[in-house]
Nucleic acid binder design. Structure first.
Lengths: 342, 342
DNA sequence: ATGAAAGCGCTAACAA
DNA sequence: TTGTTAGCGCTTTCAT
């Protein structure tokens, strides 16, 4: 009739509740023979543990730590704000969220924070990864301590992380190229690429995907080597201004990192004609305005709200040892034109 | 220290557990004065009821009914499959899902199914809406019986539905126009529009958005009146073949409903040169192949998995009377080019 | 109008 | 190695 309980299992297996519990939770002190009987009973009845009841009884609280980059980057600021708002709601689900802001592009700083999280004995850590040996070591230590690890937005290569939540950055780069190439149609010339840092995997992957498609499908367009603006507006402005002065035949720009305020400033100052077609990442007040003004042509975006929500769901499943639906972590890259701004 | 419980409230208010419970659940049989005291205690302690514990004790099961269109349309078939897979997992969360397939574009049939759901006294109904007076009446009856209603994919206008889960279809139409217009760049000519039926709101809205942007931004392109193919491949093939014969200057096609197998067949047969640019909805085996073969140029998509997941989350919140985050229901329209196929 | 006590499914301290 | 018992926070008879 209704779902079988531990009582049913105990009765069928002819043992007490505690014995069922011991088997259920893999605690020792149960004879092999008895274990068999209990397991058989569970299978026979199709028993599935009621996690809510279990959590109630053990007064369990999930403690999840987020390590995200600090700095003026408005994308990361939004992320921090998002976490704050989730923190309140999550309490209802017995989930306690802590957040620490670590210096960006700094593997040592991130590793140090992960070490701290391990000492606090949290249940899981979610982080925006920076590639570095220290970080990989710290992650491996976390896993060793039975702490779940999820990477968010920027992944860690070949690491022992449990899951990644974010967009497919190679695909995002390819999308940018597909759009930019089609928008530039026919017009030959050069394409400038602006990155934040090649130390973070998301930027590396976007560049890779972009170049793949550009080379294969739009051979008339010649790619300049990427410049690294550290996601900072001032630096991006300076670098791009130089580029625009050096090359008068730039027909397209792909900005795959932050600092787009600087990008726009440089464009406004240069007043090229015809203006270059521009594809950037992350919808902010700046990029939205630029889209409306016809200075940017497309903005690729990842929905931070969904990313945080997915990360939390995955974390819970990981901690509860429930199988994780791989689709949960996949966030589609959203594309905004001036026509479909929300 | 840890979250206050009913016991704490009872102690502070100087009443018994049952009295606290009565106030908490709005049951009568409590003097005004006592109610005040209890409420004051709750406020003072910052009490928030533990829903999991509550559900455990009342052995509550959420019963949610889905009413979705039947038919050969592969998009709706995917939806049905998605629901099946969710049905198993949802059991873990004390949620029981029932599904019924109703004839498409048929308001009476849908209304009849809704009536049946009401008699079954389910907790909530999720439906892909068809516009009709009967349906609006049935929805209003459901709400009257305290049953939550969520529309999925296609909304109901000015109805008493609790929430809508799906993409912004006006915006999707605008996106299609933005892309098609830019892809056609310069080339003047006519644009064909293929719809399923103007009885469903999503199609109406897509058309609206498409025409808005086309008129405003691409006045060189002239729009043909939409043809209605009922989301059936054979019908779409036939209609489009006629259109292509009548007008030799078709530069673009927007298919905003189903039956894209027929669209492709007609295009393959017509062999126009240069081939028209094509934007369609829903990524299926057919449309994916057409994208790869360079017959379609962009596919707009809604992620059914996420839509079902969101609908379930919203339903639970609605039933538990927890405030619903409006962002939960908003599903972004995904855009696929040949370059970013998953 | 109010309260005492048993129980939801699971866990944990303590006996045996 | 196994079992008994008392909760977790909330709801629900059944008394008073």
């Amino acid at each position: 009739m209704s779902r079988p309980t531990v009582h049913d299992v105990a009765r069928v297996a002819n043992v007490s509740l505690s014995t069922v519990d011991r088997v259920l939770n893999g605690r020792d002190g149960v004879r092999q023979a008895t274990q068999q009987r209990v397991r058989a009973a569970m299978k026979q009845l199709g028993y599935e543990r009621d996690i809510m009841a279990a959590n109630l009884s053990r007064k369990r609280v999930y403690r999840i730590h987020f390590a995200i980059p600090d700095g003026p980057n408005s994308f990361m600021r939004n992320l921090a704000a998002e976490l704050d708002s989730h923190a309140r709601l999550a309490l209802r689900d017995r989930t306690e969220i802590s957040v620490s802001l670590v210096p960006p592009f700094d593997g040592r700083a991130l590793a140090a924070d992960l070490r701290r999280a391990r000492e606090q004995a949290v249940d899981g850590v979610v982080m925006v990864a920076t590639e570095s040996a220290e970080v990989r070591q710290a992650v491996s230590d976390l896993r060793g301590a039975g702490i779940q690890v999820v990477t968010l937005i920027s992944d860690l290569s070949a690491s022992a992380r449990g899951h990644f939540v974010g967009i497919d950055n190679v695909s995002a780069g390819r999308t940018a190229a597909g759009l930019l190439g089609r928008f530039c149609q026919g017009r030959p010339g050069r394409i400038a690429i602006i990155a934040g840092s090649m130390l973070v995997r998301d930027h590396v992957e976007r560049r890779l995907g972009f170049e793949q498609v550009m080379h294969a499908e739009f051979p008339d367009l010649q790619l300049l080597p990427p410049v690294e603006g550290g996601d900072e507006a001032a630096r991006v402005d300076e670098l791009l201004t130089n580029v625009l002065q050096d090359c008068r035949d730039i027909v397209g720009i792909y900005s795959l990192g932050g600092g787009n305020r600087g990008l726009r400033a440089a464009l406004d100052r240069a007043k090229s004609s015809p203006r270059p077609l521009v594809v950037v990442h992350e919808l902010t007040d700046q990029s939205r305005a630029a889209l409306q003004d016809g200075v940017f042509d497309a903005v690729l975006q990842q929905d931070i709200h969904k990313e945080v929500a997915s990360a939390l769901i995955i974390m819970r499943n990981l901690i509860e040892a429930v199988p994780v639906d791989p689709r949960t972590g996949i966030i589609h890259t959203e594309i905004f034109l001036r026509d479909n701004l929300p």
